[in-house]
Computed example of a mutant assay.
Amino acid sequence: MTSTEGRLLGASDVRRLAAELDLVPTKKLGQNFVIDPGTVRRIVRTSGVTADSSVIEVGPGLGSLTLALLETGCRVTAIEIDPRLGARLAATITEFMPAAARRISVLIKDGMALTPDDLPDCGQRRDLTLVANLPYNIATPLVLTLLQRFDSIHGFTVMVQKEVADRMVASPGGKAYGAPSAKLAWYGHAERTGIVGRNVFWPMPNVDSALVSFTRERRARDDDMRRRVFEIIDAAFGQRRKTLRHALRGLVSEEGFLQAGIDSGRRGETLGIEEFSALAREAEGDADACDVR
């Protein structure tokens, strides 16, 4: 880790900054701020970020994780939806780690609306890493959206509610396995890389959190195929109790199941991403055959 003159936020610092902003953390925005320097350093260490990295941080809040990232010497683009927090972040970096102020850019924007056009300085020109402490209600939609829009994101490390982490990393047949698990697997491999207790947050949530690390494996972009695969996934899990034969009626014929080598009596929760992809290819073939007739 690069040694950068400055220090990280402690509990008293977080409460002082919040008081200066007259900020009362809200559940709506998932505002639980990390007050433990050891935890944010652990997240950064798990992410593998180095001085050569270019990092996107969504939801920097008061800057606890931001400072830990900058401590490595990396470049950070912070995306903050709350104008008060976004406006204060640069000043916080200048106060606590002045030498790093030139390595951070702050964009006031909803992370779900972020596009490569918003990041001309790092956009598609180099590999990007996403590192963030994400609210549970947007975590999975956000990472799926960013992976779709940013080919240059090669991986991420995020802290999320433990239940959300379980869904992200679940394997076929597991209790937590669902559409989000399968869709994330389309892009690459996710694994849980740690548990984080609730006592490191202010205000303290009523659940534990976990770290999820992800490595992108799908190299070629194919938006048409992705849409077909995701349509199959949504249909299969939309009627989770039904067999594939019934859940995918109108999408995949019995002949399509045979060609894909998949028993139509199975349920969607037993299929891995390659099997969903095989069904999507057969669904395309069925549609072409109907067009010919």
Results as ranks from 00 to 15, higher is better:
Ser47Arg: 12
Leu89Ser: 12
Thr270Gln: 15
Tyr187Trp: 12
Ser171Ala: 07
Ser264Pro: 08
Ala182Ser: 12
Ala19Val: 10
Ile93Gln: 01
Asp36Cys: 11
Asp82Val: 00
Pro120Phe: 06
Gly238Ala: 07
Thr129Pro: 01
Arg103Phe: 00
Thr2Tyr: 14
Leu271Thr: 14
Glu95Asp: 12
Phe33Gly: 00
Thr92Pro: 13
Gly173Cys: 02
Arg192Asp: 03
Arg226Val: 03
His154Tyr: 02
Cys122Lys: 13
Pro116Ile: 00
Gly73Thr: 01
Trp186Ser: 03
Leu69Trp: 02
Ile233Tyr: 10
Ser253Lys: 05
Trp202Tyr: 09
Val164Lys: 03
Glu163Gln: 12
Ala113Gln: 12
Ala51Gly: 15
Glu191Ala: 09
Leu65Lys: 01
Phe257Val: 09
Leu211Phe: 06
Arg218Gln: 03
Ala235Phe: 06
Gln161Trp: 03
Ala179His: 10
Leu65Trp: 00
Met159Lys: 05
Asn137Phe: 11
Asp110Thr: 11
Leu146Asp: 09
His246Trp: 05
Pro180Leu: 06
Gly197Lys: 04
Leu244Thr: 01
Leu248His: 04
Pro98Trp: 06
Leu244Val: 06
Arg15Glu: 09
Gln239Lys: 14
Asn137Tyr: 15
Ile104Leu: 00
Lys175Gly: 08
Gly61Glu: 01
Arg42Phe: 04
Gly123Val: 10
Lys242Trp: 10
Ala247Ser: 12
Leu128Asn: 10
Cys122Tyr: 04
Leu9Trp: 03
Ser253Asn: 02
Trp202Ser: 05
Ala176His: 10
Ala170Ser: 05
Glu80Arg: 02
Gly261Cys: 08
Gly272Glu: 07
His189Lys: 13
Arg218Cys: 11
Pro203Arg: 02
Arg218Lys: 08
Arg198His: 05
Gly250Asn: 10
